[in-house]
């Protein structure tokens, strides 16, 4: 009797475990082959028409007088809908956040010169000098610059026609630059959700105000995979050098009233014509319907 009950309980537990595994399998994406890159695309949403997985492998961000090379890969992933919003003589599509919430990966890029590069020792208030000395003595001089979305991913806009045609704005992104170092605190940003940096990235030629001069992007070397269901663009180059940036704010914690002006003096003029973004990498775009199909075909 006891043995029978134990067997029944064990069978029930096994059934529950198998059911749980089955559910987990259903919830997980089962993309295979060239489609695996699009695992974080919200393709189950029927408003999503295309999936995107873009890796910026190199390039630079020039903010006023400071240039930060892109040395660590930055991933932009998610999906976008039908191009229905008309502006700047083009149709733009709304962006949909990545399924895991990480639409733009946070890749800290090293700021050349470190802390001394943005807060030089000379002629600083005594308190700032003393603090900087402390950080130098403790080898905490490295400064990272991390690009983050300043607004929800749904604020990103994509124009496939401009991207393919190498004209106008291909992708509009509200971003902010997070400057990171223990001295600068956790809230040292250039740009914010209320006052973002708006990049209008192009694969064509920019028309910046002086002193910047036009620079040219590229759609890259395009290849179609899976019989035209996936577009792969190698050596894709998105550029914008007509954007403006607000002043740095929140740097140095409670000393931000002292530190912000120092950093802003070091950044110099950050109005339009003084900044540049050059993003070089690989772009993958897939039809969301094709991704859905790949998912359903591989249970």
């Amino acid at each position: 009797m006891q043995a029978n009950r134990t067997r029944a309980v064990a069978t029930a537990l096994l059934a529950v475990a198998l059911a749980a595994l089955g559910l987990a399998g259903t919830a997980q994406a089962k993309l295979v082959g060239n489609y695996t890159k699009f695992v974080q695309c919200p393709y189950a949403n029927l408003e999503v028409k295309k999936c995107i997985y873009s890796v910026t492998e190199s390039g630079e961000v020039v903010l006023g007088a400071k240039k930060v090379p892109i040395e660590k890969p930055v991933v932009l992933q998610g999906g976008f809908g039908a191009a229905t919003e008309e502006k700047e003589e083009a149709l733009f599509a709304k962006f949909y956040e990545a399924s895991n919430g990480i639409t733009l990966s946070k890749a800290p890029q090293s700021v050349p010169g470190g802390l001394l590069g943005i807060i030089p020792e000379a002629s600083q208030p005594a308190l700032v000098k003393a603090l900087i000395k402390f950080f130098f003595e403790n080898s905490l001089t490295g400064v990272n610059s991390t690009l983050e979305l300043a607004k929800p991913a749904s604020e990103i806009r994509v124009s496939e026609n401009n991207l393919a045609g190498e004209i106008g704005t291909a992708m509009q992104m509200p971003v902010k630059v997070h400057l990171e170092n223990p001295f600068l605190g956790k809230n040292c940003f250039v740009g914010s959700s209320s006052n973002p940096i708006t990049w209008k990235l192009s694969t064509g030629t920019t028309k910046p105000p002086a002193p910047n001069t036009p620079i040219t992007g590229s759609a890259g070397e395009i290849e179609f995979l899976e019989e035209g269901r996936i577009l792969l663009a190698k050596n894709n180059k998105l550029v914008d050098n007509a954007w403006s940036a607000p002043k740095a704010a929140g740097c140095g914690g409670i000393l931000s009233f002292l530190v912000d002006p120092i950093i802003n003096a070091q950044l110099g003029t950050t109005t339009a014509g003084h900044n540049t973004a050059i993003l070089k990498g690989t772009l993958n775009v897939a039809s969301a319907a094709a991704v859905r199909k790949n998912n359903s075909e591989n249970p």
Binding site: G165, G228, I230, L231, V285, A286, A289
Partner: peptide
Amino acid sequence: LYEGEECVLGGILVT
């Protein structure tokens, strides 16, 4: 102009 629900170029004008 290409079309097709599964076509990645669907809706894109290729000139």
